[in-house]
């Protein structure tokens, strides 16, 4: 369970990134956060695993405050939160397997990981790759893969991490419509099969409706919508965006 209590973020130059956010995400939810660019979607997501610091309030992960955590305790909490990025964030020169194994480092001491991983970890990493259907690419360099395949490697890294929560920051923004569907299907399947709480930032409204169990709308750092997909009508979206929905906010049915 993720709890955000009175969370605000003010940048050093005075701009408000987030203002007084109160949200609770239950275990196993598939939440999609929507909003215009600059609405604070990315800031909110990155606050949860403290890639961004908040200036006020508190965030608790399964009852433990990540806001107050330091050093080993912070790393321990982060170990349970996997993250998928828009630009994949793989080490391009390393093999696919090594990129997935990077998800395991939180379970071992620094010296242990320098001298290779235990067999069980390698097995786990290969299983994770198999779950996203690219096990055969394990020993290929990451930069040899297409964008969609790289994003699946990033998802496999999260799986190998045995994360209890997945944060996905615009995971399909750099992908074409077909691979977008594959990656979203992977995330959804993992969410359902393993019961991993999944929070995804998305730009496309129709995609949000198709995959989410719950939608959170942000505008100018404030929560302006929070409810099930059935309530997220075009009219409500128009409110979230402060204007009618535009065509580039729809991925389109045909391409799917």
């Amino acid at each position: 369970m993720i709890e955000l209590r009175n969370v605000s973020k003010t940048y050093p130059n005075g701009t408000k990134g987030l203002s007084n956010i109160n949200l609770t995400f239950e275990k196993g939810e598939f939440v999609v956060i929507v909003g215009l660019s600059g609405a604070g979607k990315s800031t909110l997501l990155r606050s949860i695993n403290r890639l961004h610091e908040i200036t006020e309030g508190e965030i608790r992960i399964d009852g433990k405050s990540i806001t107050a955590a330091k050093g080993a305790e912070l790393r321990r909490i982060r170990r349970d939160i996997g993250m998928v990025f828009q630009s994949f964030n793989l080490v391009k020169r390393s093999s696919v397997l090594r990129n997935v194994l990077a998800g395991r480092v939180g379970y071992h001491s620094g010296l242990r990981t320098l001298f290779g991983f235990p067999k069980a970890d390698i097995h786990l990493a290969l299983q994770a790759l198999d779950r996203v259907n690219i096990a055969e690419k394990a020993y290929i360099r990451a930069d040899q893969l297409s964008g969609g395949q790289q994003q699946r490697v990033a998802i496999a890294r999260v799986l190998a991490q045995e994360a209890k929560i997945i944060l996905a920051d615009e995971p399909v923004a750099s992908l074409d419509p077909l691979t977008t569907k594959q990656v979203m299907d992977d995330l959804k399947r993992i969410n359902q099969e393993l019961g991993i709480t999944t929070i995804v930032n998305l730009h496309y409204i129709d995609l949000a409706r198709e995959y989410a169990t719950r939608i959170v709308g942000l505008r100018a750092g404030e929560v302006v919508f929070d409810g099930p997909v059935s309530e997220a009508t075009d009219e409500r979206f128009a409110e979230i965006y402060g204007r009618p929905i535009q065509e580039d906010e729809l991925l389109g049915e045909k391409s799917l």
């Binding site: 695993n49 890639l51 912070l74 790393r75 321990r76 909490i77 982060r78 170990r79 939160i81 996997g82 993250m83 990025f85 630009s87 994949f88 964030n89 793989l90 080490v91 090594r98 990077a102 998800g103 480092v105 939180g106 620094g110 010296l111 990981t113 320098l114 990033a154 890294r157 991490q161």
Partner: peptide, 21 residues
Amino acid sequence: RGPLEAMTSVGASKLQWIAFG
């Protein structure tokens, strides 16, 4: 910076952050 951010997010220590990222 991407892989470095990813290493931070998986809970890597500084040494692991350097070794893998």
